[in-house]
Amino acid sequence: MKAALLLRALTAALLASVLVVLPAAAQEKQGEKQAEKPDKQEKLDKVSFGTNWVAEAEHGGFFQAVADGTYRKYGLDVTIVPGGPNDNNRMLLIAGKIDFFMAANTLMSFDAVANHVPLVSIAAIFQKDPQVLLTHPELKITRLEELKPLTLFVSKEGIAGYFQWLKSEYGFDEKNVRPYTFNPQPFITNAQSAMQGYVTSEPFAVEKAAGFKPGIILLADHGFNAYSTLIETRREVIDKKPDLVQRFVDASVIGWYNYLYGDNSAGNAMIKKLNPEMTDELLAYSVGKMKEYGIVDSGDSSRDGIGAMTDERVASFFNKMAKAGVVRSDIDYRTAYTLRFVNKGVGLDLRPRK
């Protein structure tokens, strides 16, 4: 159902056809002031933003910022280019055909460094990766270690990514793994199994198909501390148009606050128009799970605003992935991201008071 992780499989051969060597980024200035919101601007800057899958609630804040005029308030005319099973918007970003891209998780950022691709993550919209393993409710599983004896339905991309971390940190064994083909039926019929998914969608699909609510183990709550739904751009865009980058990040953050905590009907209407499979029920479920599990707004975002990132968090995840053999330990992972455009507290006034 989800194909975001497919985009992480960059290869040198594929990149060679589009990759252009760009100048190294200029040294970043710290403490840069937040871009001013232009209330009135005669000419809007045209911006294109590619998502990594078809329109859905997990992209809601971006659609909300288009639909409610937030991007326009920041002087931007934004076109969202939806992804899909036969699309690769990240390659369009590399080729200079679009301006920004929504990367699945931090592993993609590390992969760009390893392949000498001049892309930089500039904001992390999801503080938690929504990757989960689902279980049958009668097993009453609450700890990740309890999954080890079960048959595990894991995708090819999952085996190359998070499952290597499960082996390294928790001693999981690939002998129990069976291919996950984005069809929940094998899991539903095998009570002694677990299935991968996103907390925002697969539990809903299983409940509709099987009539039971599956148990949910969110990997992010057990140490898989990747950022997810990152905004990426090319180094040249940062160097030449830092004000535009700041405005796009700030407006996207505002869009996400409005989508989560305000009237999100305008954003949802855009999503449903682009993807009729997104029902009101599923959209509401996905938003509810994003809130319940703190996918977008938790941890550092409580203090620094949605989109927050820290050096310590990226270093921690890199060390785990290097230990698990998922990424090369000799790459300069620090070039994969920048804190220049985040951690400014943008939109915190829109957060509900507790």
Rank of each mutant, 00 (worst) to 15 (best):
N264H: 09
L219R: 02
M309I: 06
I159E: 08
F317H: 11
P85N: 09
Q127I: 11
D68T: 04
L144D: 03
P23G: 02
F163S: 00
N105Y: 06
M195R: 07
F224H: 12
S201K: 15
N258T: 04
G61N: 00
A266P: 08
L76R: 02
G75C: 05
A284N: 12
M108A: 12
Y333D: 01
Q196Y: 01
I141V: 06
N275W: 07
R353A: 13
K2P: 15
A55G: 05
G31P: 01
Y261A: 05
N183F: 08
I94T: 02
T11L: 09
G347Q: 00
F248R: 06
L14V: 15
L166R: 00
V117P: 00
A269G: 10
A114C: 09
A251R: 08
A308V: 04
E207A: 12
M321Q: 11
M1N: 14
V66L: 06
V20G: 11
P203Y: 02
G255F: 03
D39L: 15
G50P: 04
F212A: 07
L283A: 10
A160Q: 09
L219M: 08
S201G: 14
R334W: 04
V20S: 13
I231K: 10
L7Y: 05
R313K: 09
T200D: 13
Q27H: 05
T142G: 10
N88R: 10
D304C: 13
K43Q: 12
D300F: 14
N319V: 15
Y293D: 02
A336N: 06
I80D: 03
E169H: 00
N115Q: 07
K289R: 11
L350Q: 09
G84H: 05
A103E: 03
A308H: 02
M91Q: 13
L260F: 05
Y333I: 06
F341D: 00
S109D: 08
R303T: 15
S286E: 13
E236S: 14
F101K: 03
Q30Y: 15
A308F: 01
R143H: 12
I254C: 08
K73H: 13
L219Q: 02
V237Y: 14
